Amino acid sequence: MKHVLDRPVWSALETRHRAFAQGGDLARRYSPSIALFAATAADDPASLRALGELVGPDESIIMAQADTITLPPGLAAISTADAVQMIAEAPSPAVPDERIQPLTPEDAAEMLALASLTKPGPFTLGALSLGAFWGVKVEGRLVAMAGERMKQPGYTELSGVCAHPEFRGTGLGRLLSVFVANQIFARGEIPYLHAFATNAGAIRLYESIGFSLRTPINVAVVQRAA
């Protein structure tokens, strides 16, 4: 039996993130200004054709799912990667820290700059539309953040965890990861996350705060074939 997180993009776009979706019952994508993720309901020809119709000539989409990624005619993967999906079963002990503050749309440009520098994963100026973010600022400058991205019934993704290179090794990534995960637990939901399989340091961090592997995830950046 398929798990709701096996196709996390699809399950988010047909449920809690339906308001951000473009497409229909066979294939959906996030509005490009918010996120680049897209997915099909299944890998049948009709669903794949529907996905192809959602991708413009100069656009890229990102697919992420436990199943092997199948592309419709006319689309090609420009890069692929192996990732892991991890899930937490219980909250981790949190240390109160008055430096943690909610981020707002006024912080969006600085959030994008930090994400562009540290590359925690796909990030846009519209990220705050999908879920709450929190950060730590030093002398008014955002130096670390973490937040929420995809949401399915009973689940919320922990995402965007990053710290400025000047502040790596100071524990801010761990601090914010625990904080956000516990915020998700406090709502009666289960936090999960994605990490590239090659990012051993991040995986060790997440394991140390109670996350464990749920399934490998296939990732592909896709655009219309030349």
Score class of each variant (00 low, 15 high):
153 P>E: 03
172 L>I: 07
52 G>W: 05
129 S>H: 14
186 A>D: 13
203 I>T: 13
7 R>S: 14
150 M>I: 06
15 T>V: 04
143 V>M: 08
192 Y>N: 10
192 Y>C: 01
55 V>A: 07
209 I>V: 12
66 A>M: 08
131 G>Y: 13
14 E>H: 07
18 R>S: 15
123 F>R: 05
225 A>Y: 08
40 T>F: 03
168 R>E: 14
35 A>P: 05
136 V>S: 06
96 P>Q: 09
184 I>K: 08
12 A>D: 10
111 M>V: 06
88 A>I: 10
136 V>F: 07
77 A>H: 07
165 P>W: 00
41 A>Q: 06
164 H>S: 11
146 A>G: 14
91 P>R: 00
63 M>D: 07
37 F>Q: 13
181 A>Y: 00
46 A>F: 02
46 A>M: 03
132 A>P: 05
55 V>R: 12
98 E>D: 15
46 A>G: 03
104 T>H: 15
127 A>Q: 14
72 P>D: 07
192 Y>G: 11
132 A>S: 14
16 R>T: 07
8 P>H: 10
101 Q>P: 02
71 L>N: 09
60 S>R: 15
174 R>D: 06
31 S>Q: 15
97 D>V: 09
185 F>H: 14
79 S>P: 02
221 V>P: 01
12 A>Q: 09
158 L>T: 03
57 P>F: 03
147 G>Y: 07
55 V>W: 13
73 P>R: 06
87 I>E: 01
79 S>E: 15
204 R>E: 08
135 G>L: 11
187 R>L: 12
211 F>L: 02
189 E>Q: 14
98 E>R: 13
131 G>R: 02
33 S>W: 05
43 D>Y: 02
18 R>N: 10
18 R>H: 14
151 K>E: 08
16 R>G: 04
213 L>V: 08
24 G>D: 14
55 V>L: 09
52 G>Q: 01
102 P>C: 11
66 A>L: 06
54 L>G: 12
100 I>C: 12
177 S>D: 01
226 A>F: 10
119 K>S: 13
9 V>P: 12
13 L>G: 12
120 P>G: 11
141 R>H: 04
201 G>K: 13
208 S>V: 11
37 F>D: 05
180 V>L: 09
48 L>M: 09
192 Y>V: 06
71 L>M: 07
155 Y>W: 13
146 A>W: 04
50 A>L: 09
45 P>N: 06
26 L>V: 01
100 I>Q: 10
160 G>M: 03
50 A>F: 10
193 L>V: 07
183 Q>P: 08
224 R>D: 02
225 A>I: 06
9 V>G: 12
91 P>M: 00
70 T>Y: 04
184 I>E: 05
137 K>Y: 02
58 D>R: 14
32 P>N: 11
187 R>I: 01
214 R>I: 05
194 H>S: 02
167 F>W: 06
51 L>S: 11
29 R>I: 00
168 R>D: 06
206 Y>C: 12
58 D>A: 14
117 L>R: 14
41 A>R: 15
